[in-house]
Write a protein that binds this DNA or RNA. Structure first.
Lengths: 340, 340
DNA sequence: TTGAAAGCGGTACCAC
DNA sequence: GTGGTACCGCTTTCAA
């Protein structure tokens, strides 16, 4: 059986209080005593039981990570960043796949509370801030990841989605596209709205004569991308499409293939995120890159800081996106469109 | 503050023992008492504190998942299966990215013990079975995922890697390839060895005159695939390449592109796993599909069964791989090779 | 400097 | 049926 502090105490002839003191470097313990205790600790390969320690009021060294779906390149990479940083700091990550399901989210949140998580990183789109405040009341430090900064002051790590949308539009406008389709994620999600706003603003700023086409449909996956792109292309004279994430963009490329349109000659496509998909797909995807790993790391780091300083961080970290030009976008050539 | 059983006991005028009984449906509690207690529980929205419960000797309802890297499509999908099943059963998953690093693995294992995990799913390549037995001694139920069945009896979920390798060779042999390159993951990993054995055996069985070329180099990622494929193609007259995972295969395709070889006209490429990469890459990849999600689910399910029955499952689940033919493999045409 | 003891929130044995 | 109470393993106050 794993040794306990009682074993350590007995074998080194001191009380558990003293053992605890040397374990935590708290209180004044005579050097010789300390040494004696440490020797026994090493001898028995003693390791503090985190569960007991947590129950007694200390950290559980665990952080919950609420995420729509880890089996999604975007979130998988964020998760990697989160976990790496957490591991560095001595914390572990408990994953919660919500599938954008409010009910699952609530269930997970309860679980996390009952398991005494020290902190929670929320990367799902739409947790009401009331929930977040509840968590704070239970002394669980919350960090919101990858969506717009909510009203309530709370630790937030996000990419500048507005700017990202802006850059995408700028790129397309510079290539002289004047009829652009926009494939969005559900606009209930803050980041989606920001991307759209940025996109529209850039269009106004740089090429006010441009028309943008937005489907009522929205979603996340490749299939959705194909569906919406098909709708956009058949209903409107678009020569370019912005897809709010790489998966949607890949779907759009597939739609083009199905419809016999060449990318980028007939239709330019630009994505968002820069997951591996963007490099693998054919043609390689021009996209707005997000520093996903970094987002994860920063979120974890902020959370740990909150936990260890004992007060909820209020910082808002906003990272910059970056335009990565590959081969899926090209200059608009009018004669092609006429041939349409 | 969250209510405790003491609060419930006080407000419903009974002892904590009784509250515990109604919570656990253990012991005989008078119906009226039960009702009274339940009412208070609902009123206060009481929820059992898992940490305290675990310390008192019950389950922690947490399972550790040791995996090389969740930011890898193959493992991400397995993780999804693991988490879904665990969630269904009321357990949560703690992730541990080992990066094939023995040191990290040891550190994680300690962490998991100290956090009183009920079970651990090990999807990394090479945990010595001694470690596994240690875990068992601490009453932690272990399931090994996705590698060969070790000597010691232990719960194992795996795909038939031998068969997978066999099928890949069969496919290539049927296409009349007689000079085949083999890109492997490190052969320290059991599943890699099995794939290689299966591959070689099929070649013997079906086309003994075939030559196989194996590099000393090995690895996991796209870059590695490109590197090894380049070596294979420049040093040997290969007309086909088997890559032990889809990433390596994608790398191989990129190598072909760089070397001016067409896939599949000049070189056929077959992968392993069938991650999304296989569908996205150009040309779409012929590959040996693994039921990754299912693997994860089964592993979680076995683990939970072990935990809840109290005795380590010894079952060995072996799922079948499947050949998925896409466009990266084709019939060998001798005249092409002559032109080489 | 050290130790006795009262928790933390549950569980479960044993007596009534 | 129900309740008293001794743990689980560690932390921390308070007194010595």
């Amino acid at each position: 059986m794993k040794p306990t502090i009682y074993d350590i105490a007995r074998l080194s002839g001191v009380s558990t209080a003293t053992v605890s003191h040397v374990l935590n470097n708290t209180g004044r313990v005579r050097a010789t005593t300390q040494e004696k205790v440490l020797r026994v600790i090493n001898e028995l390969e003693y390791q503090r039981d985190t569960t007991a320690s947590a129950l007694a009021g200390k950290n559980s060294y665990s952080i919950g990570f609420l995420v729509p779906d880890v089996n999604n390149l975007y979130f998988a990479e964020i998760l990697r960043g989160v976990e790496d940083e957490a591991f560095q700091c001595g914390y572990s990550i408990l994953i919660c796949n919500t599938d954008h399901d409010q009910e699952k989210e609530r269930t997970y949140l309860k679980m996390l509370r009952n398991k005494r998580m020290d902190g929670i990183i929320i990367a799902t789109g739409s947790t009401p801030s009331a929930v977040i405040e509840d968590l704070a009341r239970d002394n669980i430090h919350v960090t919101v990841l990858s969506r717009e900064i909510p009203d309530t002051s709370i630790a937030t790590v996000t990419v500048d989605n507005y700017l990202g949308g802006y850059m995408a539009a700028q790129h397309l406008a510079a290539l002289r596209h004047r009829h652009i389709g926009f494939i969005t994620e559900p606009l209930t999600i803050g980041s989606s709205r920001d991307r759209l706003r940025g996109f529209e603003t850039a269009l106004c700023d740089e090429a006010p004569q441009t028309r943008m086409y937005l489907s009522n449909d929205s979603g996340f996956g490749i299939q959705t991308g194909t569906r919406i792109a098909t709708e956009l292309i058949t209903k409107h004279p678009v020569s370019a499409i912005f897809a709010a994430n790489d998966q949607l963009a890949v779907g759009a490329i597939q739609a083009c293939r199905q419809l016999g349109k060449r990318v980028p000659e007939d239709i330019s496509i630009i994505g968002f995120d820069d997951t591996v998909l963007a490099k693998i797909v054919h043609p390689p995807l021009t996209t707005i890159a997000q520093p996903m790993y970094e987002l994860g790391k920063r979120a974890a780091s902020l959370t740990v800081t909150s936990i260890e300083t004992g007060r909820q961080a209020l910082e808002g970290v906003i990272l910059k996106p970056e335009l990565v030009v590959r081969e899926s976008t090209g200059m608009f050539e009018s004669e092609r469109t006429d041939a349409r």
